[in-house]
Amino acid sequence: MSISLEYPWLLILVILPLFIFRFSPAYLQPSASIYLPFFARLIRATGQTPTSGNQVQQRKRVQMLALLLSWLLLIVCLARPVLLGEPIFVGKTGRDLMVAVDLSQSMEQKDYQLDDETVSRLTALKSLLVSFSEQRKGDRLGLIVFGSGAYLQVPFTEDLTLWQTLLTQMDTQMAGPATAIGDAIGLSIRAFENSSTEQRVLLLVTDGSDTSSRLDPVDAARVAATDGIQIYTLGMGSINTLGDDKVDFNTLNKIAVVSNGKSFEASDSNAIAKVLAQVNDIAPASYQQQSYLAKTELYPYLVGPMIILYTLVWSGLALASFVARRKAIKYESVYQGVINASDNSENKQVADSLKEEA
């Protein structure tokens, strides 16, 4: 912990009183005087040079010290002294990543190996996506499921646990038996409208061809590209597959090209893992960290003592002035009493000495 000044350049004002005392005229306070009609003749007769009857009131030493100390404290307060605490780090999301998963009936096929066990395509994909999401700390993840239609399952969130939970709960045909790739891309575009990040990525996973979209997939990809969305396509199946289960790799490749993304083939679980690792390398998780120092303002702790000091000094001076005036009035009364009691010169001399003492 340390002390710092927010506006240290204001400390130069400390020397301002020196310029005022040096270059500005002193304040003259009028004093009591006697009016003489023959003042001019008196001056000529005595040969003296008349001077101003005004006086420059001299401050007492304690008064001067209090003023200087108050001025110094005031300037220090204007410079805003702060107590710096330990740095506080705040993380900021760097990238929004949407994952669109095909839940058509063909994802039920058990032709993928996972831990020496034959599992369905969807089961293998879920397991590998969970591992993939754990490497995306710092990103916001979203989830879209699509079949005959496309549905936003999870809006962009930094809560990876929630994302993983909803991912594992999805099942085939919950979005219909067909495949609407174009609608999934269109829905992701709408999801990205509320995104404030500049880095936007869509991971599109499917094992078939577009069969029910109202929006052409390639045209949707062009629109996504204008919004700065990169699309990485992942075709689950072999390029040699024929029939209804054939993956339209040609369309997936076009989608990736027009959106400045990449297209991948994942014919088995190992291939999926390698593809997700490549996606991590191409578009690594982005995490921007900001830090700031906790600051405690110190000027309230200076202003309080300054006000107390100022009040005590001026209260003491006012009290001393009051006592002096009362004492002067007392001696003036004694002086008048002596004058009234006797007119002889001896008593008058005593009265004068009392007045001088007062």
Rank of each mutant, 00 (worst) to 15 (best):
V62T: 14
L83Y: 05
E158T: 11
R121Y: 04
L74I: 09
D216N: 11
S342M: 07
R214M: 09
P87F: 01
V275M: 05
G208R: 02
A320L: 13
G235W: 01
Q109N: 08
Y287E: 15
Q55W: 06
G243A: 09
V201P: 00
V154M: 09
R200E: 06
L202P: 00
P284H: 06
N340V: 12
V99I: 14
S321V: 08
Y232M: 07
R200S: 03
K274I: 05
R140A: 01
I12F: 12
L11K: 04
V313N: 08
N54T: 11
K137N: 13
K327V: 07
E346R: 15
T211A: 02
I34D: 15
V275G: 02
Y335A: 13
E265R: 15
C77Q: 13
S148T: 03
M306R: 07
Q153C: 10
S286T: 14
A256D: 04
I231S: 00
A285Q: 08
R22A: 15
I185N: 02
S259T: 09
I20Y: 01
V313L: 11
R61I: 15
D116Q: 11
Y310C: 11
K274E: 07
T161A: 11
Q349K: 13
L83R: 03
L84K: 10
N347T: 14
P177I: 00
E158S: 15
R136D: 01
R44S: 12
G85D: 09
D268S: 08
N260V: 09
Y151I: 15
L65Q: 07
A358C: 09
R121I: 03
G186I: 11
E346D: 11
L141A: 01
A178C: 08
T165H: 04
R22E: 14
V82N: 04
S213W: 12
I255W: 02
Q290W: 14
Q336E: 12
L69W: 06
S188C: 07
S133M: 08
F19N: 15
C77T: 13
Q173D: 09
A79R: 07
T296F: 05
A124I: 05
T51Y: 03
Q288R: 11
I3T: 12
T179N: 06
L73G: 02
Q336G: 08
T251W: 04
A294E: 10
G182V: 06
W9N: 11
F89M: 14
T233H: 03
Y287Q: 15
R61P: 01
S133K: 03
T296A: 09
L242C: 05
V201I: 14
R80L: 06
R222N: 07
A285W: 00
D116N: 14
V323Q: 13
V205E: 02
A266M: 02
P300Y: 04
I339W: 02
R200Q: 05
S209G: 08
S259P: 04
I144F: 00
Q173R: 13
L74Y: 01
I282S: 04
A221G: 00
R190C: 00
Y292M: 03
A178I: 05
D116I: 05
T157K: 05
M170K: 08
L5K: 04
T168M: 14
V76T: 06
Y151R: 15
A324E: 12
A341C: 13
Q164K: 10
E332H: 11
V218C: 00
K355W: 01
N260S: 12
F264Q: 01
G243W: 00
L187Y: 00
A318N: 11
